[in-house]
Design a protein around this nucleic acid. Structure first.
Length: 421
RNA sequence: GGAGAGAUGGCCGAGCGGCUGAAGGCGGCGGAUUGCUAAUCCGUUAUAGGGCUAAUGGCUCUAUCCAGGGUUCGAAUCCCUGUCUCUCCGCCA
């Protein structure tokens, strides 16, 4: 959420910022309601001040045994006026907030301006795209052939958009999760195992609600949501908290399933594991001092890249254009890895700086060196998503004889197995 | 799921329906003092939102004792609802 004061003082900057994202939230309406709000506050607080004074006088009179009934009658009327104005104030504030919570974050100045992903800028590429002398099968074919991936079974059990791994396929997923968690932990990230089902307030905190309501699975009985990413429970660990600046920066990492309805995505990338309703992901979260958040963004990006470098899978990094940014992000890098079977780049990680957008929503603050209360900056980055990493391993490590070489870094986690098939 | 108890400032903890934004303690910060790795003493110690003042500061008002309602001229204090925590019972991986 943007700071109301900031919106009030920099309306043109805010409008220009959201325009870059093709967002058309009515900023003028917010300003109009805000001025109405402040006008009511001025009136009602004057009345309250009078009331408090009169209350004191009534108490004095009663103590002295004097008659206070005239003042009491007068105050009864003032009380009613206050009640009416408080109601009006609440209505105005609710209306204002109902718009304010839909205002996306303002893109950072280093974000390329553009309407959609076609304006994304590739900032670097790593690794050589392999040119195998045989036909590399897409992961769903090689996976089925080796008996480690069963899409049909998943469809039978749950429906379309689910995958089922078995045998060494399941073990490969577990090995990847362990490899990633161990790598990040060794670099100072605290491992977290947080709830996968959260309340609405938590979903609001990281910016999923209200905007992404339709993309999430929701429980009907208890009004809870299945998390779309571990970012949600891990970042919200600091919801409603005051952190001492000496504790910053805070690095956390966690593994979770991610549940996504993918409403409206039907027909796009539907083959195999590439777009599914449930997938595993290792997620890194940082809570940092505002002064260092853009340096922290770069190092978080490198941390995610480290995983792919360890696996020796070629990738590229994109600086997302303003129109392609997610609701809460001020800047975001996507990492896309090369999948040799489907012969294209797959988005596998988003590394974002939310600045104080999430912290303000969560009411997470820190006391800085001068004892001032400030909002920290929050960042997160996939480190990385499994449902696209597994296909990349199955395709990039595929051999001409239909076997798959187990990447070296995973062998300790696979009981020393060097080949699947 | 059933029964009961509780929720107060960074922490602990007191609180009669009316000078209680809240005693006391701890911690933190500032200072004083002492030949000694510390003690003692004094002071200070929230957040948010308005308004005024062109100050990188000040003045002032309002709100906040889990949350939301209610009673009342007036609520931390009384009533209702919800949330969470604890204890006991039931169920259970």
């Amino acid at each position: 959420m943007l700071d109301l004061k900031f919106v009030r003082e920099n309306p043109e900057l805010v409008k220009a910022g959201i325009a870059k994202r093709n967002d058309h939230t009515d900023i003028d309406k917010i300003l109009e309601l805000d001025s109405k709000r402040r006008e009511i506050i001025r009136t009602v607080e004057q009345l309250k001040s009078d009331k408090n004074k009169a209350s004191g006088e009534i108490a004095q009179k009663k103590k002295a045994g004097e008659d206070a009934s005239a003042a009491i009658t007068r105050m009864r009327e003032v009380g009613e006026k206050i009640g009416a104005l408080d109601n009006e104030l609440r209505t105005v504030e609710e209306e204002m907030n109902s718009i304010l919570v839909w205002v996306p974050n303002i893109p950072h100045e280093s974000v390329p301006v553009g309407a959609d992903e076609s304006a994304n800028v590739v900032v670097r590429e790593w690794g050589e795209i392999p040119k195998p002398d045989f036909t590399v099968l897409p992961h769903w074919e090689i996976g089925e052939k080796l008996g480690i991936l069963d899409m049909a079974a998943a469809a039978k059990i749950s429906g379309s958009g689910f995958y089922l791994l078995k045998g060494l396929g399941a073990r490969l997923q577990r090995a990847l999760v362990s490899y990633m968690l161990d790598t990040h932990s060794a670099d100072g990230f605290t491992e977290m195992a947080a709830p996968f089902i959260v309340n609405a307030d938590t979903m609001f905190g990281t910016g999923q609600l209200p905007k992404l309501e339709a993309d999430m699975y929701k429980t009907t009985e208890d009004n809870m949501y299945l998390i779309p990413t571990a970012e949600v429970p891990i970042t919200n660990y600091f919801k409603q908290q005051i952190i001492d600046y000496k504790q910053l920066p805070i690095y956390m990492v966690g593994h979770s399933p991610c549940f996504r309805r993918e409403a409206g995505a039907a027909g796009k990338d539907t083959r195999g594991m590439i777009r599914v309703h449930q997938f595993e992901k290792v997620e890194m979260v940082k809570i940092v001092h505002p002064d260092s958040s853009y340096d922290e963004l770069e190092s978080l990006l490198l941390q995610a890249e480290k995983i792919l470098q360890g696996l020796k899978i070629p990738y590229r990094v994109c600086n997302l254009a303003s129109g392609d940014l997610s609701f809460a992000a001020a800047k975001c890098y996507d990492i896309e890895l090369w999948a040799a079977g489907v012969k294209r780049y797959l988005e596998i990680s988003s590394v974002s700086n939310f600045e104080d957008f999430q912290a303000r929503r969560m009411n997470c603050r820190f006391r800085d060196e001068d004892k001032k209360m400030r909002h920290p900056h929050t960042l997160n980055g996939s480190g990385v998503a499994l449902a696209r990493l597994i296909p990349a391993v199955l395709e990039n490590y595929q051999n001409a004889d239909g076997t798959i070489t187990v990447p070296e870094v995973l062998r300790p986690y696979m009981g020393g197995i060097e080949n699947i098939g």
